[in-house]
């Protein structure tokens, strides 16, 4: 990390993403160029800078089409970026991963049913990874497997069981145990509780919280449920149309958002205690297509604060407060409009 071109105060980070872009499409063959006219490229990611501190849960929120799944795919190496860099624990991660570099970033998937191989027992699933990566000597594989299962709240007796014998929540525990087996530096959790029932969600959220506090695990938590994010995350990054538009510590982001899109998201949360508010920040219509990103600030067509300057300038992500960044030209103006019914600050 000797290149001092980046931020002057380079915080220690276990995962760092710089200037990452991903473009899909843009015709390659002459035939498609003939048939569909000018090239149409989809900018799924348009310059992402992000870092994950050791031992923190960073939540990544955004609506469908915001690019958060694409980012996750690039981070685990199952998609290659068009440009930009990913580094894990200070070392650059190659776009095409080998055995060692893929070990460092592991993932927990949304669907606990398709993420476990129905024909492989729990014990075989874990031992295969432990042996392949030589995590422990062969004689200790069983003990290590049991340790992993205990870590996620399961018992030794599940070693011989097939995934079909488990409920959704328990499958998600198994998926977490599998991800932890290879001792990753970073865990990417892609909507890990949204396929689960409410009463089961809580146990998995508690498990993530425990893993962070006891193992110091660094987790990138992708989610659309903001109540879940608020409960678990230390920091939150908000994505809109392939860009990160706001990053802040969780309580600051939810009590004093500095980007109107974040504000709109908060206003859209169905509330259990308060009734939702109507203060002009709710969004009409749907996110514009990533094929046709608006000029200027990409949020301006839906923004209640937008003015001429927003139509002409594409705002970068700038520091607006302590550990708080926003890509909005009106971030200061927004700070003066308090959120009605704001949740209480973290104690």
């Amino acid at each position: 990390m000797s290149t001092a071109v980046q931020e002057p105060t380079l915080e220690p980070s276990v995962l760092r993403v710089s200037a990452l872009t991903k473009r899909y499409g843009g015709h390659s063959s002459w035939l498609s160029r003939l048939t569909s006219g000018p090239s149409v490229a989809l900018k799924a990611l348009d310059g992402i800078d992000l870092h994950l501190r050791p031992g923190e849960v960073l939540a990544l929120v955004g609506e469908s089409g915001s690019g958060k799944s694409t980012l996750a795919k690039i981070l685990v190496g199952s998609a290659t970026p068009t440009s930009g860099e990913v580094s894990v624990a200070g070392q650059p991660a190659p776009a095409r991963r080998d055995k060692e570099s893929s070990r460092r970033v592991q993932m927990v998937f949304q669907d606990p049913y398709s993420s476990l191989n129905p024909r492989i027992t729990v014990g075989k699933m874990l031992s295969e990874l432990l042996l392949l990566h030589r995590i422990v000597p062969r004689s200790e594989v069983r003990a290590e497997s049991v340790r992993l299962l205990n870590l996620v709240g399961l018992e030794e007796d599940v070693l011989g069981a097939y995934p079909s014998q488990f409920s959704g929540g328990q499958r998600q525990r198994l998926a977490i145990a599998r991800a932890l087996a290879v001792r990753p530096d970073v865990l990417i959790a892609d909507e890990p509780v949204s396929a689960l029932d409410v009463s089961v969600q809580a146990t998995i959220l508690e498990l993530f919280a425990t893993l962070r506090s006891e193992l110091g695990l660094s987790i990138l938590f992708i989610a659309h449920n903001l109540a879940v994010v608020q409960h678990l995350a230390d920091r939150v990054a908000v994505m809109y149309l392939g860009r990160i538009v706001e990053v802040a510590e969780t309580s600051a982001l939810f009590s004093a958002p500095r980007h109107p899109y974040t504000r709109a998201l908060i206003d859209s949360i169905p509330r259990m205690t308060e009734t939702s508010v109507n203060d002009g920040f709710e969004l009409d219509g749907e996110p514009p297509s990533p094929y046709d990103v608006p000029a200027g600030c990409r949020f301006h067509p839906r923004c209640p604060l937008a003015s001429e300057v927003c139509r002409e300038n594409d705002p970068p992500l700038l520091t607006v407060g302590r550990a708080h960044e926003s890509a909005c030209l009106k971030a200061d103006e927004l700070a003066d409009i308090p959120v009605p019914n704001a949740p209480q600050e973290h104690a």
């Binding site: 969600q201 809580a202 449920n225 309580s251 259990m272 308060e274 973290h346």
Partner: peptide, 11 residues
Amino acid sequence: LESAPDFDRPD
């Protein structure tokens, strides 16, 4: 009610 995260009571 107790297992669902409540946005209004984050703690």
